[in-house]
Design a protein around this nucleic acid. Structure first.
Lengths: 112, 112
DNA sequence: TTTATATGAGCTATACATGGATCATAATGC
DNA sequence: GCATTATGATCCATGTATAGCTCATATAAA
């Protein structure tokens, strides 16, 4: 019992992941694709795809997004072109913010 | 050089992940939270959060969603309650689909 | 300016997700 | 009905993401 990390997740995160998995599974079946087929296209194993569809938080982010893309789920309801533009806009917005966030040395507890 | 798998990702997936990272960073700074602070709340290391914000596909799905939730990004533009309902709806929809997808034995190559 | 701190980058050891196999069950199509 | 195949659930070996440091730089506040 050297390490009992056991990462925790908020309810919202788990549900969002679970929903994403369900969406993937639904989309896959609607497109009449087998688990094996999607796994092959995504370049992942069958077992991993099953975990993704099951809503396992301990999966690779890239693999999950790749699968979602393959079955036709747009994570941001935007085409690739729009996405690029969106990224640029976010970067611009980011440029306006301070490079580093500095905490007030000690004013009061504001963690409520 | 026993294995040079080097998983590949579609352009869209990479951009979506990159966008998510930028959104997280922007949201974090807008909320005036430091990398360390968010990392602590998410129960992850500072380095991992940096990779997430950088758009590294090789991150844990759960950690990424958790961070997004902490900085106030709703992946599905829905509250937790609505999310649960949405999950249920998806499950219902799933129940109407065939349990397993069966490929036509051998008609023609339809992989175009 | 000076000082303190946030950020970025690189490194290593280790826990753990992944791939690949097997087996059992379920379910589709004939 | 039967035969075929998709799915689900294990298990194990191994590649690898992760945590936790260190150092260097940049940046915000005094």
């Amino acid at each position: 019992m050297s390490k009992v990390s056991a990462r925790t997740y908020s309810r919202y995160s788990l549900e969002a992941i679970s929903l994403l998995g369900n969406l993937i599974r639904t989309a896959r079946k609607e497109r009449k694709m087998t688990v094996q087929e999607v796994a092959d296209r995504a370049g992942i194993s069958r077992g991993l795809l099953q975990r993704i569809e099951k809503g396992d938080p301990k999966c690779e982010l890239g693999a999950t997004f790749e699968v979602a893309t393959i079955v036709g789920i747009k994570l941001f309801d935007a085409e690739a072109t729009t996405l690029t533009k969106h990224i640029r806009q976010t970067e611009d917005k980011l440029a306006l913010l301070p490079k580093s966030v500095r905490k007030k040395v000690k004013v009061a507890d504001d963690d409520f």
